[in-house]
Structure formats: C-alpha cells, structure tokens
C-alpha cells in the first residue's frame, strides 16, 4: 500500500466502470479521493514541473476561507446553543405548566361533575317528595275548603215565603241554614258552599241584624246551597234527616221554597283563608 499504483483509487473505479452496476454505498466507500488528483499526477509525470504559483496562493486562500468558516460555524453554534437551550427550556416549562393547569382543570371538572350529578339526583328525589307534598296539599285543601272544587252533587235552593218580613215562620233563620248544612254533611257532602261561600271549619252561619251572615257577610234570599257528593243518593239521604223533614214541614206549612236538585256538576269556590292566629299544629298528620 506504500507504492503509488497500489494506492490509486482509480483502479477499482476502472474495474468497476466495466461493471453494469456498482452499489452506491460501495462507490462512496471506495472512491474517497478525487479522481482529479490522480489524473493530474499522471499528467505531471510526463510533463513534470510544479503547479503554477497562483494556484498555490489559491490553495492558501481557500484554506484561509475554510478556517474562517470553521471559526464562524463554531462561534455561531456556541452563540445559538444557550438561545436554543433557553428556548427549549422555556417550551418545556410552558408545557409543564400547561400540563399542571390541565390536571387542575380536570380535577375541577371531575368534582364539578360529581356535584352536579348529586344535585340532579337530589332534585330528582325532591320531585317525588314534592309530588307527595302537592298531593297532600290538594287532598287537605279540598277537605279544609281552601281549594275550589268541581264535581257532581246537589243544589238546594231555599227562599223565604211571600209573606212580609217579620211574620214568624215565613222567614228562614240562621239555625234553619245551620241545620240544612249539617244535614248535607250528614248526607255525605264533600264540600258545601252557601251563596258561593265555602263552608270551612272557620265559617259561621249567624244571624246579624235582619240578615243571615255567612263568613261575616250578609246574604239575601233566595239562598243557594251547593254541595259535591253522590248526586244519586244525596237528595234522598238529605230528606231522610231530621233537618230535611223539618224543611219539608217548612215548605208545606209556611210556603217556604225548598228545592233539592241533583246536578252533574257543581262548582264550589275555595276559601283562601289559610293562616291561623292562635292554633299551632302539634306533630304532622
């Protein structure tokens, strides 16, 4: 390998030039020296003599340039390194802080979602409770008379006789109406109104001055009493009561109007009063 012909990298190339195909890698590995050096060297052997001095200067200049490039490249890289590293560090820092933020958000999201689910379940459960409460309010409201009701029932119309006021017997008294309402309850009424005044546990039928008052309001005859209940049995049951008998007597003897009519539908107003001043409930029903 010490003599020139052996060293020449041109030999494998001249061999391979005959070949149809030489692997690219093989070519790269073997042909590492510029062919030109060999060509020039062969030419020089025949003509002899050194290359002209201007090319020598060129070679030095090129080396100078190379040195310059080397220095610059080194300098550049050295300058860029901290910048690149800093940028990278900043990037990583941002990524990590974003990661942390996202983790926090996801934790918040999870707890929020939990809370919302619980609230929804609570509300759903409440809806059932509320329905129960509403049903209770409704059925108690009907019984207490605070809710207006509609249903089949009877309508009783009573009126004073044509006799002049003051003539005994011909005028309906508060006790007559009390007994009539009492008899209607007895006959199975569920709700009763006298001249559109709902009968509640607080409602009194009284006589004040010259007029009957219901719920502190004066009424004038004829009085219309409406009651919900079984329209088929109520009229008969009403007339069987002692009050019913008494009213029939009144009708027969004093020409007082007493008319009981079964109705498919009667509307009974509610009495909105539902606050108590003195009584307090002890224990729920």
């Amino acid at each position: 390998m010490s003599d020139k012909p052996d060293l020449s990298t041109g030999e494998p190339r001249s061999d391979s030039s005959g070949d149809a195909y030489v692997g690219l890698l093989t070519q790269i590995m073997t042909q590492t020296l510029d062919q030109d050096y060999l060509d020039v060297a062969q030419r020089r052997e025949s003509s002899s003599g050194d290359s002209p001095p201007r090319w020598q200067v060129g070679a030095v200049a090129v080396l100078l340039l190379f040195g310059l490039m080397l220095g610059l490249a080194a300098l550049n890289t050295a300058q860029e390194k901290p910048v690149v590293a800093a940028e990278r560090a900043e990037l990583i820092e941002q990524i990590e802080s974003n990661q942390g933020k996202l983790d926090n958000q996801q934790a918040t999201l999870a707890s929020l979602s939990d809370e919302v689910t619980k609230l929804q379940q609570l509300l759903a459960a409440n809806v059932a409770d509320d329905r129960l409460l509403t049903n209770q309010l409704t059925s108690l409201g009907i019984d207490a008379g605070t809710l207006a009701v509609t249903g089949p029932g009877v309508e009783v119309t009573v009126d004073d006789s044509g006799y002049s006021v003051g003539e005994s017997g011909g005028v309906i008294l508060d006790s007559d109406l009390q007994l009539l309402v009492n008899a209607l309850w007895q006959a199975g009424a569920e709700a009763i109104a006298v001249d559109e005044h709902r009968m509640t546990t607080l409602t009194a039928i009284r006589f004040a001055g010259e007029a009957i008052t219901v719920d502190y309001r004066s009424l004038t005859p004829p009085y219309i009493i409406e009651a919900t209940g079984d329209p088929d049995t109520m009229p008969a049951r009403l007339l069987e009561t002692r009050a019913g008998q008494a009213w029939l007597d009144l009708e027969a003897n004093f020409d007082i109007q007493f008319e009981v009519v079964a109705k498919d539908k009667v509307s009974i107003p509610g009495d909105a009063r539902d606050n108590l001043l003195y009584a307090e409930a002890k224990g729920a029903s």
């Binding site: 020139k4 590492t32 050096y37 060297a41 002209p52 060129g58 090129v62 190379f66």
Partner: peptide, 21 residues
C-alpha cells in the same frame, strides 16, 4: 482529501481549490 493527496504525493493546488469550492 487534499491532505491525503498530499501524503500520497499527488497533491495539486488547482485540484484542491476546485474541489473545495
């Protein structure tokens, strides 16, 4: 490449300059 050619004794300034550029 130039250094190797130099050691091989076949260095040429012109070839070096051209190959470099």
């Amino acid at each position: 490449g130039g250094l190797r050619a130099h050691l091989d004794g076949i260095f040429d300034d012109k070839v070096f300059v051209i190959s470099f550029v």
